[in-house]
Nucleic acid binder design. Structure first.
Lengths: 133, 133
DNA sequence: CAGAATCCAACTTGATACTG
DNA sequence: CAGTATCAAGTTGGATTCTG
């Protein structure tokens, strides 16, 4: 499947039915769609990075959420964790090959959000003005 | 920006800094990343569709969540709502031009999820087996 | 038919304090 | 440095009931 096929695929086909197949896809959509996951994946693009450096690159994330997000991604096989037995401790994270395949969709989504944010905020303001009156 | 550029864009650039610009993009990522939003957007691809028909096409969604999701999308200017003054009432929804621009990223994401779900579930099982022992 | 309103259980997140 | 533990607060989603 190439990126060109994206335009011909349909949501019905991808998430069809109430069966296991569609359910897994729907679960994944929700699973990765939380506050930090896509952001963290994007920041891992450039290869191994330390925990503290990663925390600096994701503005606003708490220690707790970074740890939880990384553990979830590691469990799903998208992120690799390497811990070095030194003092002070050093732990590095990077994307697995599977994790790298998530990058294009994630960036497409982020790019869309950036390009559309202006119009969305404008529409939202219009809507609120219409409803409040 | 074309789809080809997606591979050259970087998450840093898109969501940079703690300033307003990056914050809006991060908020949007979270905003659209809930349980139903992308699914509903995908199901609206084929044009006007009634509330009840839409509910049938999104398996498992509750009345409440369908209503809330549609209202959110309408507020953001992604979905258009048309209500016909008939009895019984008829309300139709479809994507605005802005809403249509979300389709390619959403489908890219869903396509990725479908293609990767098998490996992810396998990795997850491995991880759990390793950790539980 | 297409919802609005209400209630509640479950989950998510952040802040804080502590540790190998 | 790289976490873990605990608690409090906020948010989300489902079930149910009611209505124009």
């Amino acid at each position: 499947m190439t990126t060109a096929d994206v335009h011909t695929a349909r949501m019905d086909d991808i998430c069809s039915g109430a069966g296991d197949d569609g359910r897994v896809v729907r679960d994944l959509l929700e699973h990765l769609g939380d506050k930090w996951t896509l952001l963290v994946v994007g920041m891992l693009e450039d290869g191994p990075i330390r925990y503290s450096e990663l925390k600096n690159r994701v503005p606003g994330i708490s220690q707790r959420m970074l740890t939880l997000t990384l553990k979830k991604l590691e469990r799903d096989g998208l992120v690799r964790r390497e811990s070095f037995p030194e003092i002070p401790p050093r732990v590095e994270y990077d994307l697995t090959p599977l994790g790298h395949t998530l990058l294009p969709p994630a960036l497409a989504f982020a790019t869309w959000a950036r390009g559309s944010s202006g119009e969305i905020l404008a529409r939202r303001a219009e809507f609120d003005a219409r409803v409040t009156r």
